[in-house]
Amino acid sequence: MTNEEIWEWMQRDLDGDLSPTEQDALFNLIRKDSDLQLKYNRLKTVSQQLEQLPPVVPSFSIVDSILPRLESAAAVPAASSTLNEEVLPTLEVKRKQSSPSVSKKWKKTNVWLASIGSTAVAACLLIGIMFTGSDGKKIEADPYQQGSEAVNPALKEAPILGPPVQSPPPSTNPPTSNSQEEDKKATQNTGTTKKAPAKNTSSKSHQNNSNKKPVSNPAQTKPVVPPKPVVRDPKPPAFPYGVGEESDKDSRDRDSDSEDREKVKSKDKEKDKDNDRKKDRENDDD
């Protein structure tokens, strides 16, 4: 038997793994060899010391310390699910990550829209400048090339943009101050009637009531003179066009004007009918 085998048998004997015959054979060998005896005694001492290790005990009951946790986890499984849901706001991290990307996209689209809008405005301005610039050049260049006298463009009549207007186009807009002139022309054409002055006076009185508008008196102007543009208040409009604040006076003026117009029209029609009847009578006489 080799030393290795003897050493193994010694170890097995300490663990009680040797049969009685094996144990007798081992003890016979140890008795003959003092070194083997010393080795065996040291190993046995170590084994005895290991067997005599103090049984350590926890300073408190570990089961009692973990029981509340265990019972809460077992009894309320919903609590764990809520905890998981609370962890999901780490999905909030994802949301947080996604939200800036969305805002970036919106920012990009806004920037693109702004750039497109600005280019469109710039193009419109350029076209407008080109048109106006070309008109100015014509005014300056043409007289110079043709050798005609140079006339100060400021003294000239304002150039009319667009086609020349021979007759005013029919407009759907309600007439404002021009309707008064038309009314007066109508009265002048029809001659002096008893009712007409009364209307004029009413309209004049109405005009006098609204003295704010410095409208020229149509009675002093001749019918040959082309109608002058209506002079409006120099006061800038406080509201955008179409949304302007209407005073009660203006609305009343408009109502009275429309009534006058209707009356004049009805009178004109009656006069036309009278003329037709007269002509018919003359024809009948003939």
Binding site: Q11, L14, R42, L43, T45, V46, Q49, L50
Partner: peptide
Amino acid sequence: RQQLQELL
């Protein structure tokens, strides 16, 4: 066990 014996 051998190591423990040597250490001790």
